[in-house]
């Protein structure tokens, strides 16, 4: 490859092709959307679901903003499974707390000192719908966006490289921690740690896993930081990017429309001009 000249017009075709090959490959037109557009859809869908409340509005948001994208990306089944896995444990907690502690006139049944009220069931239902919409919206973003692509795009828009690195390191650390946790679990099982036995044995086996996972994650972040510093990561001044992600007028328009739409909904709800849907 030719040495960097500072002037992109001097790049040969081969250089351009090489640089283009470094960018993440999009699996579908939805994957190919600019990460900020996908982030805007996820964020606005989540916020609007909470601001509007009820059942109809969050489900409408899910139908209009999330499901078409998931279908276009070919991830609807996987996304639904992920969203259910994420929202079910929280939903159970929410349901238990809301159903039995929410004051209401209609008592459905009683368990010991606790009354299960219809109002509590309704409240829990609304929260669970919003949680599910949130899980679907954020899950769609996660399944269709590479962390490094999002961070590179934010950096192109002026985000400090240091903040961008912190964000990327955080996002990339999660799958790495899962992988490391499995390796650590294997090492402890090789020393006779019983993870296939009783519940008590499994609970007792947590500590030998937690320590190495946290310590090795911290060490790795430190090593990555040092590796970046020795490659002049902290150098002041403007920097060029090897690859950038496509953005266009239609996507910008969509983002602005989502933002303006959300502000109108928010103002409408606060001012009472927008009626609450069931």
């Amino acid at each position: 490859m030719a040495p960097p000249s500072g002037n992109p017009t001097t790049l040969s075709e081969a250089d351009r092709a090489y640089l283009a090959s470094l960018a993440p490959q999009a699996a579908s037109p939805y994957h190919a959307l600019n990460p900020l557009t996908k982030a805007a859809i996820a964020t606005i869908a989540t916020l609007a679901a909470f601001v509007l409340g009820g059942y109809v509005a969050p489900l409408a948001i899910l139908t209009v903003l999330v499901i078409p994208g998931a279908v276009a990306a070919g991830v609807l089944t996987r996304l639904t499974r992920v969203a259910v896995l994420i929202s079910v444990p929280i939903s159970i907690s929410v349901a238990l707390v809301s159903v039995f502690t929410r004051a209401g006139a209609t008592v459905l049944f009683t368990v010991g000192p606790f009354d299960a009220t219809a109002e509590g069931v309704d409240f829990a239902g609304q929260i669970i719908v919003r949680l599910f919409v949130t899980a679907m919206a954020l899950g769609l973003f996660g399944l269709t966006t590479e962390p490094r692509a999002f961070v590179v795009d934010l950096e192109r828009r002026g985000l400090s490289p240091r903040v961008a690195f912190a964000a990327a390191a955080t996002l990339e650390t999660i799958p790495l921690m899962v992988e490391r946790a499995l390796a650590i679990q294997a090492a402890q099982r090789a020393r006779g740690l019983d993870t296939e036995g009783s519940l008590a044995a499994r609970i007792g086996g947590v500590m030998p896993l937690v320590g190495p996972v946290i310590l090795s994650s911290l060490t790795e972040v430190e090593e990555r930081s040092l590796a970046l510093e020795v490659r002049a990561f902290g150098r002041p001044g403007r920097r060029d990017q090897l690859w950038t992600l496509a953005d266009d007028g239609r996507q910008r328009l969509l983002r602005w429309a989502l933002l303006v739409g959300f502000i109108l909904v928010l103002v409408g709800r606060v001012a009472g001009a927008l009626p609450a849907l069931p």
Binding site: A183, R189, P212, S216, T219
Partner: peptide, 23 residues
């Protein structure tokens, strides 16, 4: 046979010590 049982016969020392040290 469970891993915990087989570990009484075969002990494996993995390459990276930091993936097991916790105490």
């Amino acid at each position: 046979q469970r891993v915990a049982h087989l570990a009484r016969t075969v002990g494996i020392a993995f390459q990276d010590p930091d993936r097991q040290i916790f105490a």
